[in-house]
Computed example of a mutant assay.
Amino acid sequence: MFDDLYYPSHEVTPLTMAVIAQYDENGNPVTRILEKQNEYFVRHTPTKIINNACKFFGSSLRGRQDGTRGICGITHKAPIAVDPGSGMYFFPTISPTNSKCSWIAHSYIDQVNEGPGPNRSTEIIFKNGKTVLLSVSYGSMLNQVQRTAQYRYLLDNRISYLRKHDADMVAEPFA
């Protein structure tokens, strides 16, 4: 890889499909960003990029993880809502404290398949046809997809309920 392929930073957006952990030619952690139409490399870990995205939307990764725990009790490898208003729900492939952790956007997944060969790997096919092969067991990946769907359902229901009943719950009267 060449230095001109790397962007100094990247903002996670509703077009971001995955934030993939990789290593450069010197063994340093880098991140491959997959978007609907583009692909970038950034010299930060995926978890740092996700934490920055959470901060951009007024929280932190820790805050989002605490929110997930409060809503549905998930404590390990918790899915998060970077921004529920724009449908940005991501889940980690392994512990976010591990530099090999990648983050996948739930809404872009089309299929999850067992990877080729006897090793523990999973292929994710996104809705636009792009694919990634991750060193995570198929069962673990399916579990993460299902837990994210559960969390997304519960949080979306809370938000919908508040929107329906917002006239009764206005914090300040209109002037």
Rank of each mutant, 00 (worst) to 15 (best):
T97A: 13
S59V: 06
T75G: 04
V132P: 02
A78V: 07
C54H: 07
N28T: 09
E35R: 01
R32P: 03
A21M: 04
I50G: 02
R120M: 11
V132H: 02
Q150D: 14
Y40W: 13
S59K: 02
M17E: 12
S140A: 13
P46N: 04
Y138N: 00
H10Y: 15
N38G: 05
G27P: 06
T97Y: 06
T13L: 01
I50S: 03
G129H: 02
Y138L: 01
S95Y: 08
I104T: 03
P92H: 08
M141Y: 08
V112Y: 04
I20P: 05
W103E: 02
T148Q: 01
A53D: 06
Q65N: 05
K77C: 15
G73Q: 10
D66S: 13
R62L: 15
H106V: 04
D83E: 14
M88T: 05
P118D: 11
E25V: 12
A81T: 05
F90G: 03
K55Y: 09
G63D: 06
I49L: 15
G139E: 12
Y151E: 00
V145S: 00
V132N: 03
S60I: 08
G129F: 10
I109H: 05
L15V: 00
G129I: 11
Q37Y: 09
Q37R: 09
V132T: 11
V12Y: 03
Q22C: 12
D24G: 01
C101T: 12
K55W: 04
F90C: 04
G129E: 06
R152D: 03
